[in-house]
Design a protein around this nucleic acid. Structure first.
Lengths: 268, 268
DNA sequence: GATATAGTTCCGAATAATGGAACTTTTCAT
DNA sequence: ATGAAAAGTTCCATTATTCGGAACTATATC
């Protein structure tokens, strides 16, 4: 049972809010699993009595959040897609940032991401890529850990000390590559660098052979923190190359910040 | 993946599976609205006492399904995106159909859709389009009425009489264009045609200047019904042209049906 | 500055969720 | 085939959560 973060609409995975929270925890389990889960599989993961679990799953299926296949495995329901499609299409922040992302892509030729902080994760909102083979890229909507992505570290570097402490205190450091930060101390020194420079790097920390440079999107009156990043494969993109792009990334992030703060009102 | 759901699956104010159903009805309201909704707006739409509504919304915000902006309007939460991204990426049916959709697109040059029936709506699962300007097209995940889309009518034509009656009895006919079906009788004659031919047309019934031809995806042991369609603007795509493509559409739908039935097991 | 409107909190009453146990179906070894 | 074990489903008295009216605070309007 993780703690309950007090503020911030972008919330961390909380095992909290009564009935709803428990139901969504189950959706999370099904959605996050790479293989199909049978009733008993879920029973093992979720600590719930059988009767209870069965009823909850039934409700979720009835509501279209999950779907029960003929082989008795559960899969994500179509209603999730419907929700998300409208959520994405109607997202003002994404719309504001889109043209700037394209500009940055034209300048660098590499993949450009837009993301925002949600608890201890970064959720990707948009992506511009050269080769458009996949249409709705799996990346959009995906959530990655903050501590090992350029975008995540850039965003963290823009947080207030209090908010940062809140997030960091909840981090569980999982090691993805040799370069993944293994503790808060190590992460903090990277954040210091990011604050000093105005941009952050991912030095193959999340995935081997993948590098990126990112800058935070953050402004007075903007009640969320996010960022943009330029990502490329190590064989094509050197650290020097990234450093060359960094000022542009920082500049464009600043432009988006300003525009977003303006258009998303004094609050948001 | 709509199983034999007893009733009421669309965005109508749900009879409600207890607490969860009521909560999701609120998500639906917020997600479906084109303009930002304030507390009072939602209060007018959802028939709930103020105290109740306020608590429910608070829970939804806490869980990340909704987000409360600074101007006190509610917007869809990021967690929805996270859910959907994985749901989409992991959808086997979509993956099976994808190469066939591309083939059909190469053959016709027009936009190809994949969708499935969910209650009285069609939910689009995938799309192949020539000009890829938008990345995660709003179309994917979108839900359209069954009675005025080619894909919807094709899917309906493949249903058993019992299942069809169930769906039709719930339809509310809204008029989008001069050609939109206004009642079940009119729709039924179209379905008869679709059953006879093995494909269905959308003769500018949902949107003016937009036509399409579609065929059902349906098979023994496949517990959902869907379809594929080729869509184009009226100025470029004549009815004759659509009729020319129809056999291909029907054939490819049959291939997908077979393959899906095989790979998605004996059950759904 | 007074009044109306919007948004938030509280708490006893009502209702829906809980979870143990019994029951049915499927799977697997013999 | 047969029986036993595992998986999945249903039931219902108990318990915890939600409900919703009313009181309260903040914000907009005149």
């Amino acid at each position: 049972m993780p703690s309950h973060d007090p503020k911030n609409m972008t919330n961390a995975p909380d095992t909290g809010t009564g009935t709803l929270g428990k139901a969504l925890a189950l959706v999370d389990i099904v959605v996050s699993s790479d293989r199909p889960l049978r009733f008993t599989d879920i029973l093992d993961i979720a600590s719930q009595p059988r009767g209870t679990l069965h009823r909850q799953l039934s409700h979720l299926v009835e509501e279209g959040l999950l779907s029960l296949r003929g082989d008795l495995t559960y899969e994500p329901g179509l209603r999730l897609l419907k929700f998300a499609a409208r959520a994405w299409a109607g997202n003002e922040f994404r719309a504001i940032a889109a043209p700037h992302l394209r500009k940055l892509h034209e300048e660098t030729g590499e993949t450009v991401h837009l993301g925002v902080l949600r608890g201890s994760e970064v959720v990707y909102l948009d992506k511009v890529e050269s080769r458009q083979t996949v249409r709705m890229q799996s990346q959009i909507g995906n959530a990655s850990p903050v501590y090992c992505t350029g975008l995540g570290k850039a965003a963290l570097s823009a947080l207030s000390p209090v908010a940062l402490r809140e997030v960091v205190s909840q981090l569980v450091f999982r090691t993805f590559t040799d370069n993944t930060h293994r503790d808060a101390i190590s992460l903090m020194s990277d954040l210091d660098e990011a604050r000093r420079l105005g941009y952050a790097f991912d030095r193959e920390e999340h995935e081997a052979e993948i590098r990126c440079v990112a800058a935070a999107i953050h402004a007075e009156g903007l009640s969320f923190t996010g960022g943009i990043s330029v990502t490329g494969p190590a064989y094509r993109v050197t650290m020097e190359q990234l450093e060359g792009w960094a000022p542009s990334v920082r500049r464009i992030a600043a432009v988006i910040s300003e525009e977003a703060a303006l258009k998303l009102g004094p609050g948001r």
